[in-house]
Amino acid sequence: MSDPLLRVERVSKSYGDEQVLREISFEMDRGDVTVLIGPSGSGKSTMLRCVNRLTEVDSGEIYLDGERVTGPDVDVNELRRQVGMVFQDFNLFAHLTARGNVMLGPRQVLGLSKEEARRRADEQLALVGLADQADSYPAELSGGQKQRVGIARALAMEPKLMLFDEPTSALDPELIGEVLEVMRDLVERGMTMLVVTHEMSFARSVASEIMFLDGGRIVERGPPEQLFERPEHDRTATFLRRITQLHS
């Protein structure tokens, strides 16, 4: 069994005249942590959204666990059950408590009983360190806490793959650490993760592969040491220089 968990083949996508993704191809094995970096508008988030089909590809194929997920006959709800997503601006359900947010999917999609769903939710909340905030509503939580609930909500579906769309970009600097820590835990537990982020030290310490996207193409890819220390392309070097200046 050497089938990769995720295989992206020549995926292209454009909005009107603007081509956002140009023939992107890559693969991820189980347990891989792939980090997408690149300037705004380079197509990173679109790539992520194509994987769980919040955005439809124009051409190309995506396979999850050997099964094609692009194409009209695919059950997108079944696909999304297997692929968790964490959003930049959290998107917590505003009318539900932290526990309610995590329970909703197991209840409505997996069809668990209320007790089972509740047990699972409390487990997941404990794993992200929020056992004591289970009854709080989103508006009563800090940004970092909200994002941890967002992660718990996605994990409660027991996904095969987790997508992180700039999970710390909307956070105050002092709250970023707690979210990254939860993500590091996940890496250690062997979760397969596709991450869009500007947190370079995080990327460097956990990524199995880093891909630099610019203008809808993968400009350069490789293990973190290679990309950070010996970038082959000028554009990669320039981008990395700028972003490290910005964040130091």
Partner: peptide, 15 residues
């Protein structure tokens, strides 16, 4: 984003 988040955990549009 509320709709997207709901769809992202596999709920159909009506749910």
């Amino acid at each position: 984003g509320q709709m997207e988040a709901a769809r992202s955990i596999g709920m159909d549009k009506l749910a």
